[in-house]
Computed example of a mutant assay.
Amino acid sequence: MKDNPKIFIGYSDVSSILLAIYQMTGVTTFYGPALVASFGEFEPYNEMTFKYFTDIFMENPNLPYEFEKPYFWTEDNIDWEKQKKSENKTENKWVTCNKGVAKGRLIIGNLNTIASIWGRVYMPKIEKGDILFIEDTQKTAAMLERLFSFLNVNQVFEKIGGLILGKHENFNDQGTLKHPYQILEEVLGEYNFPFLAEVDCCHTHPMFTMPIGATIELNASKQTITLLSSKAKIS
C-alpha cells in the first residue's frame, strides 16, 4: 500500500481500516461516502455528497478549501426495496459549543469503532494539538456517555487542540432530552478548546469527504472547517 498508494474511502466500521492504513503506511485515507449507502440515495442527497467527493478527488481544489455547510440534511431510514422518493429534509444547523480557532492534524472516525482498536499499533496516537472529529449512530444516551468517558479517561481531551462532533443518526436520548453534544460537554467538564457539533461527515446525508491526517483549521466561532493541506502527517 505504501509503495503503490490507492484511494481508500468509507465510514463507520471502515474507520478501523482507514486509520490502520494511515498509521502503518502514512498513506492518506478518507472518511467519506460509501458506494451504495451514500451514492445510492435519491436526489438531492446523492448529488450533494457527490459534489463534496469530486471537490476533493476530481476538481483539485485550491487550498485552502472550505467545506460548505449543506442547507439541509436527513437521517430518515427507508427500506431500500420500498424507497421510491427522496428522504425528508431538515434545515441544517451546526452548533458552536465553545468558540475559538485551532489548526492541526485531523483524526476522524466512528467513535464505537475507534474504541475497538484503541491502544493497538493500528490506531494513531492522539497528539498535542490534533483536531478530533468523532461521530456515531443509533446509540442510546447511556452508551454514548460511556464512549465519551472512554476518551476522557484516556486523556484524549487533555491533548487535542479542537473537537468536532458529527450528527448522530437516530439518537435515543432515553428521555433525557439531551443532544449528544450536551452529553459530551457533561463528560468534558471545564475545557478551553474550540468545539463544533452537528457537522455533516457521518451516517446522515449528505456527507463530506475528509482526508485523515490532513491539516485543517477549525473556526468554531464562525462555524467553518477549512482544509489547509491534504497531505497526511504522521506523528
Rank of each mutant, 00 (worst) to 15 (best):
W94L: 08
N110F: 08
K89G: 00
W118E: 10
S116E: 11
I114V: 13
E91P: 02
K89C: 02
I117D: 11
K128F: 12
V101E: 12
R120M: 09
N98G: 06
I107F: 01
K125Y: 12
P124L: 04
K128D: 13
K125M: 11
I117Y: 06
V101K: 13
N88R: 08
K125V: 12
L106M: 07
V101I: 15
R120Q: 11
R105Q: 05
V121C: 14
R105I: 05
G119I: 15
V101F: 11
C97P: 02
P124C: 06
V121W: 13
K93Y: 10
K125F: 09
K103L: 03
I126M: 01
K103Q: 14
I126V: 13
I108F: 00
P124S: 08
T113D: 08
A115C: 12
V95N: 13
K99F: 05
V121T: 13
P124E: 10
R105Y: 08
K128H: 11
T113P: 03
S116Q: 12
G100S: 10
I114A: 15
I107N: 01
I117W: 07
N110L: 06
I114E: 14
G109C: 06
K93G: 01
M123V: 09
A115Y: 05
I126H: 01
P124A: 08
T96Y: 00
L111E: 11
G109V: 02
I114T: 09
K128W: 10
E91L: 15
T96L: 05
I107D: 00
Y122K: 04
W94G: 04
I108H: 00
I107R: 01
R105E: 03
G104L: 02
N92W: 01
V121M: 14
T96I: 03
N98C: 03
K128R: 08
V95A: 06
N112H: 05
A102L: 04
R120G: 15
G119D: 14
G100K: 06
G100C: 06
I107P: 00
P124F: 03
L106G: 05
I126E: 01
K128T: 14
N98P: 01
P124Q: 09
Y122V: 10
G100H: 05
V121E: 15
G100L: 06
S116W: 03
I108P: 02
G104T: 01
I117H: 06
A102I: 02
K93H: 12
A102K: 13
G109K: 06
C97D: 07
G104N: 05
I117N: 08
K99P: 07
V101H: 04
E91C: 07
G119P: 14
N98W: 00
V121K: 15
P124R: 09
T90V: 02
G104C: 02
R120N: 12
G104A: 03
E127K: 07
T96W: 00
G100M: 10
I114C: 15
W118Q: 11
V121R: 15
V95E: 13
L111N: 11
Y122D: 13
V121L: 14
N92F: 08
